[in-house]
Design a protein around this nucleic acid. Structure first.
Length: 596
RNA sequence: GGUUCCAUAGCUCAGCUGGAUAGAGCAACUGCCUUCUAAGCAGUAGGUCUUUGGUUCGAAUCCAAAUGGGAUCACCA
């Protein structure tokens, strides 16, 4: 039972005894820092039943609670606010129980629900950019959070490895590539393929322009352009399994996968299972018959199949073309069904940008209409776009921030700053490089994850991502200071692990109590982050913990304290906070250095 | 145009299911390293929470409208 639950129960009792009413909705909140207390009860809602002034009501309830709850040391009343002070011994006892332990219980219960998280889902025609970075970090972090909250998580990637856009890169390479390979050019595979995607677009635009100059409309030109006809032909060949086309496709996709692999590794993300659209794009056609037989889908005169969603405030959605080929939606219907057959998930989370809100609304609605029980567990983790100062990123216009370049820049900046501060001294080259990566990538990850996923975010390439203030390096810095303290303590104190300290009566400093309360809050934050699929809550929590510790560290002697019991207590407190910081940052995919 | 999301300090963002004087960081200005790591700490300044109505004892938070901005509305993915 949490302390809040205890307080709520006692308050219910108080209202019963004092005013003879039974109320269920009783919530305590953190006391505003400007007032004395740990938890606050707002008594305005009870005035109707108490029929007394706010102050009087609060005092009556406070008196009852103080007399009947051993955890409450004292209370005070300000207007309609009843502030309760919880006794130091309660907090000290709580701390004793978590001392030296991780706040995350890593063992999963045997009946843990399975949650499938899909994220990343790249196209194989171009390298990853900043938008993908947000997607990957979010998907990975949400997976870690769900695991920590007691779920069995399956991370999956659905690679979009086929289609007209892939043919663009292939055709351009064939025409203008001169046999260039990653080995011959020294280019990373995904960047090489992306180069030809851009190349195609350049030539295509030129062709359109000349056709328009010959008097055609833009639409006609786009349909009649020889390049357009060629990639369409290429796609047909691919679909019919033409050997040469398939070989080219496999070779170029192979380059891309090698490239992606290193980007993923650098980002620190991974997957339990990878699906390829080339294997799933034909799925969903069986579903059409099923839907038709259930009367959920309908057939038009031209033989195309659709679902009428106008009653749900949406439009008609085509699911099968007149020629019998499927569309994106059909594919997603089929893939979802396949996954449900393979794995008995309680939830399936799609980490996809909010530009596809409509698509997922329709997808989920259709699956529910088809009567699948598991469809109730589908969730679109819809995140906002990453925007540049001049608007949205557009790959074809070259206004993208490349993921690999960005990461390299972050690491280089971290290296420069670390050297300037003289903090790389005494490290081997490997250690130093590891440190730069931890700091640079930590800063990047924290920067992207501290923002509410639902909201769009701005990235200004002109301003480098900060290393001061509300950032990962600040949190890492506080962790490192703790580690340094513990190293020194080990040299000077032979019985650091002496737990006897807790049998003594330690008088908690105000900040010490606040830190323990902060640790206490972790579980609630984790639960909320898991329920809302929101890593930003973890990021903000971790920053607050680090910030409070930083103040504590600054103001309070730890090793320099003269009383040994206090030294031990403060070291234990520091150590536990260090563990909390590390595991919390781990949920964001951020690694803590030992020294910096 | 239909649907939908958003609007908080100069900038980037917090503000939990309505609660006390709206908070951080950056940028600006002041102090503080012979003292456990100054990527730090403390302080000053900066706000009509886009606007107008409504609900309520109480609204940045809930409802409605207006204004501004984004997304989406393919037999594309």
């Amino acid at each position: 039972m949490t302390i809040e639950q205890t307080l709520a129960g006692k308050t219910k009792e108080a209202l019963q005894t004092l005013y003879g009413v039974e109320l269920d909705k009783i919530a305590f909140e953190k006391t505003n820092p400007d007032f004395e207390g740990d938890f606050t009860l707002v008594v305005f809602p009870f005035l109707k039943v108490s029929k007394k002034k706010p102050e009087e009501t609060a005092t009556e309830i406070g008196t009852y609670l103080k007399e009947n709850t051993s955890e409450i040391a004292s209370f005070n009343v300000v207007k309609g606010f009843l502030n309760l002070v919880i006794s130091d011994s309660y907090w000290l006892n709580y701390f004793k129980n978590i001392n030296g332990k991780s706040l995350i219980d890593a063992t999963l219960p045997s009946d843990a629900p399975t949650v499938m998280v899909e994220y990343s889902s790249p196209n194989t025609n171009k390298p990853l950019h900043l938008g993908h970075v947000r997607n990957n970090l979010l998907g990975y972090s949400v997976s870690e959070i769900l695991k920590a909250a007691g779920n069995n998580v399956v991370k999956v990637n659905l690679v979009n490895d086929r289609g007209i856009h892939i043919c663009k890169s292939m055709l351009a390479w064939q025409k203008w590539g001169n046999g260039e390979t990653p080995a011959s050019s020294g280019l990373k595979g995904d960047h090489l393929v992306g180069k030809y995607y851009v190349e195609f677009d350049k030539h295509f635009k030129q062709e359109i322009e000349s056709l328009v100059n010959q008097g055609k409309t833009k639409e006609e030109a786009e349909k009649q352009a020889s390049l357009m006809l060629e990639i369409q032909e290429m796609l047909r060949k691919w679909e019919s399994g033409d050997k040469a086309t398939r070989e080219l496709w496999e070779m170029m996709n192979g380059w891309v996968y090698t490239g992606f692999e290193s980007t993923y590794k650098m980002l620190g993300v991974d997957f339990d299972k990878t699906y390829y659209e080339s294997n799933t794009y034909l799925l969903g056609k069986d579903l059409i018959e099923f839907g038709l037989s259930k009367g959920v889908f309908k057939r038009r005169a031209d033989n195309s199949v659709f679902i009428d969603l106008t009653e749900d405030g949406l439009d008609e959605k085509t699911l099968l073309r007149g020629d019998g080929t499927s569309v994106y939606m059909t594919q997603d219907l089929g893939t979802a069904t396949k996954r449900a057959e393979e794995i008995n998930f309680s939830k399936l989370i799609y980490t996809v940008g909010n530009e596809q809100d409509y698509h997922f609304k329709v997808l989920f609605l259709i699956l529910n209409k088809l009567g699948y029980e598991w469809a109730k567990g589908l969730y679109h983790l819809s995140y906002g776009m990453v925007e540049l100062p001049n608007g949205k990123m557009k790959s074809r216009e070259g206004t993208v921030v490349d993921a690999d370049e960005l990461m390299q820049e972050m690491i280089a900046t971290a290296a420069k700053t670390t050297k300037e501060l003289g903090k790389a001294e005494g490290l081997s080259e490997d250690e130093a490089n590891q440190l730069y990566a931890n700091i640079g990538l930590g800063a990047l990850k924290y920067f992207m994850l501290k923002v509410d996923p639902k909201k769009k975010m701005l990235f200004n390439p002109e301003e480098s991502i900060d290393f001061n203030g509300n950032t990962a390096p600040f949190i890492q810095f506080n962790y490192v200071r703790i580690k340094a303290l513990l190293r020194k303590a080990k040299d000077g104190l032979d019985n650091f692990n002496d737990i006897d300290v807790f049998t003594h009566n330690v008088n908690l400093l105000k900040k010490e109590k606040e830190l323990i309360i902060k640790l206490y809050q972790f579980n609630g934050v984790l639960q909320q982050a898991a329920n809302e699929y929101n890593p930003a809550l973890i990021a903000n929590y971790t920053y607050e913990l680090a910030k409070e510790y930083s103040q504590y560290y600054h103001d309070t002697p730890i090793l320099k304290e003269s009383e040994k019991d206090l030294i031990l207590f403060r070291l234990h407190l520091s150590k536990t906070i260090g563990i909390a910081l590390k595991s919390s940052m781990g949920l964001l995919g951020i690694t803590m250095p030992e020294k910096m």
